[in-house]
Amino acid sequence: MAGYIPVGRRRGTGNRPQLLRGLGFVVIGAALLATLWPTFTGDMGWSGRSGTLTVSSCALGAGSHPVNTCQGDLRLSDDPTVHHGAWVTTQNDYQPGSAIPVRAGTDGSLQTATGSDRLAVGFGVLMCCAAVAVGLTELVRLATTRHKPRR
């Protein structure tokens, strides 16, 4: 019968859906990983400079998710200079005189990292790596599978 295509077989698709799915996982996972990596390394203390902010005042911001902006004197572990007027945003409310462990980024910003921040960003990095691994596994499977020639 001319033009008859058996159910379950489509003409001309080959391995394109599996290839696109594998490439999609690799590209999306790698893009998200590239986005999260700087935050991850900062939260884990692998980048930036560690220091302590001695709080002089904290002010609660407005909005649906208000954060505290604390200002004070910053002492970096590798710099004896005291930097006055440094500020950091945090979810916690600190009293004047409190010492907040911070990391100074290369752009001059300050960050605090709590255990829950580290856990969330670490989980995100793990999921990105899993997506890349799934995509690479799919691509390797496609590359090593022998296909029967069509009749």
Rank of each mutant, 00 (worst) to 15 (best):
A86S: 14
C58R: 03
L36H: 06
T69V: 12
M127Q: 07
M1S: 13
T69L: 10
G42P: 00
L19I: 14
V26S: 01
A31C: 09
G124V: 02
T81A: 14
A86P: 02
R141I: 00
G108D: 07
Y94I: 00
V27E: 03
H84A: 15
V27F: 13
V27A: 15
L76N: 01
Q18S: 08
I100S: 05
R9N: 06
D79I: 03
S77L: 05
R16G: 00
G135S: 05
N15V: 06
L53I: 08
T145V: 09
T137R: 15
A131M: 15
C58K: 03
A133D: 03
G24K: 10
H84P: 03
N92Q: 15
C58I: 04
L136Q: 07
T90W: 09
G14A: 12
A130Q: 04
V55N: 12
M44Q: 15
G29N: 01
Q111Y: 15
V134D: 05
I100G: 01
D78V: 03
D79A: 02
G61M: 01
W37L: 12
N68V: 02
Q71G: 02
T41V: 12
C128A: 10
T41W: 10
C58E: 02
T54E: 11
T39M: 12
Q95A: 13
R150D: 06
D117P: 01
V102F: 05
H83W: 10
G48E: 01
S47D: 12
R150S: 09
R49G: 05
G135N: 08
P96Q: 08
H147S: 07
A31L: 14
G8E: 12
A62K: 14
V121K: 09
S64I: 11
A59F: 09
E138V: 11
A31P: 04
G122K: 05
G24A: 15
A104S: 13
P6M: 10
P96H: 14
L136F: 14
G8Q: 12
R16V: 11
L20M: 10
G135Q: 04
M127W: 10
Q111G: 09
W87K: 12
